[in-house]
Design a protein around this nucleic acid. Sequence first.
DNA 1: ACAAAAGTGTTTTGGGTACACCCATGT
DNA 2: ACATGGGTGTACCCAAAACACTTTTGT
Lengths: 250, 250
Amino acid sequence: MANKLSDGNNLIETLPSISVDCVIFGYDENKLKVLVRREFIPYNGEVHEEWKLPGNHVRKNEDIDHTASRILKEQTGLENIFVKQFMVFSDPDRLKRNAYDYEWVKPRLADERVITVGFYSLINVSDVDNSTLIEVANWADAYEIKDLMFDHNDIFDEAFKKLRYDLLHEPLVFELLPEKFTLTQMQKLYEAIFNTTYDKRNYRRKVNKMAYLIPLDEIQTGVSHKPARLYSFDRDIYENTRTERFDFRV
Amino acid sequence: MANKLSDGNNLIETLPSISVDCVIFGYDENKLKVLVRREFIPYNGEVHEEWKLPGNHVRKNEDIDHTASRILKEQTGLENIFVKQFMVFSDPDRLKRNAYDYEWVKPRLADERVITVGFYSLINVSDVDNSTLIEVANWADAYEIKDLMFDHNDIFDEAFKKLRYDLLHEPLVFELLPEKFTLTQMQKLYEAIFNTTYDKRNYRRKVNKMAYLIPLDEIQTGVSHKPARLYSFDRDIYENTRTERFDFRV
DNA sequence: ACAAAAGTGTTTTGGGTACACCCATGT
DNA sequence: ACATGGGTGTACCCAAAACACTTTTGT
């Protein structure tokens, strides 16, 4: 029942009625971004530029986390990146909200209907070789997302909600921080994602209670101000000391 | 690409590679229960009794919430019941963990692999006409779930985690309480679901702050002790006063 | 009268929040 | 010397948690 579908230049067997769409959050100079892809859609004789989230079909023998990791690799070149499913979008007409978009996507489908699983992911924009994706993709400001194709605005909104929730309950920040980081870098990251500001002293009091945040015997170099102490995240300590109702709130 | 599959006695077009499985939580005399179905599995010449969660295929033109509601109706006879998706289970071998189980399920599948969306739901066991389901289904104690078929123990575990989280952040308790209820009924319900006990005074102080909990001019009748005041849940007030970071913790 | 659950206040403790100044470094 | 971000402590308020007795009804 799996179908041969064109996936790039290869014929690969995929499941006909399930796809994965990825909301790839990128952190770049204290701003939260989202990766969107440009498509050119024929439209009443003209061609319109439209944007969508990256997605792909699920292959016959992979689980959906693998599909999501594959999309991450295709879009960013990065591997072993954290991906997390957050919601299934199953409106039978979800691809038909705009007739031209549907005409465009129809030849790529094995069925007239596709249920999609939404994933989100977190990367450092500086880890990506952005020269390779600049033509078809764009890092859009997470707080100014334009109209996307299909139900992709819904998918983005749900991803953002889930991201914020998860950040308060799991050590996700560290996916976006370098190996060694300063407390201010960590604070700025929270501020970008929650679109707010925190009091520095209260913030530090809170994070200083986190036993898995290890102060290193190392400080920043090359900054023209008092260099900050570097910290690292100790996942072992986190795993061993986490409690049922963990709280990353800052 | 949709497939004609036998659904009971009717041929109904369904999507080949997606199903919905439901964890139906039932509240019964201060105990939390889960609905499981009995199946007889041929096993080395014998027939074994096994248990699984109720599930079904997704029809060609329905969204998955409709599939879940349909399963609820089939299993309990109840309609307009709250259902909520919580996770997708997509291990390509999820149906093959036990060879006999797979042999049993294979003829019911359009593909050798099915990705399933987990839903949970909440009902009052007393609302169900249990005489009709007694032969094939059973209300199992949520704290003593036996081995289930396929990956259904994983599905149950995730459902229970999500139920507990959602109960603290959404007004789900009221799905399980009658229209008019006492504060003690509400407390017992939390205690059953979180498997704990609360201090009555602290509990009441907390819930008395909830503006959407309306004390009625009505008290219990027919109890051989001081009758308790009845309360009702006002969804309008809840919707109008809910804030970003709502907290149902008690 | 007694059994059974309803209903009610106070104290202690810890966390959240608001707030301002000196320090170390590069230029 | 100055600009820049790093780093620190205190006071107030409120919510969480621990804890025991009186009230009302049915039998």
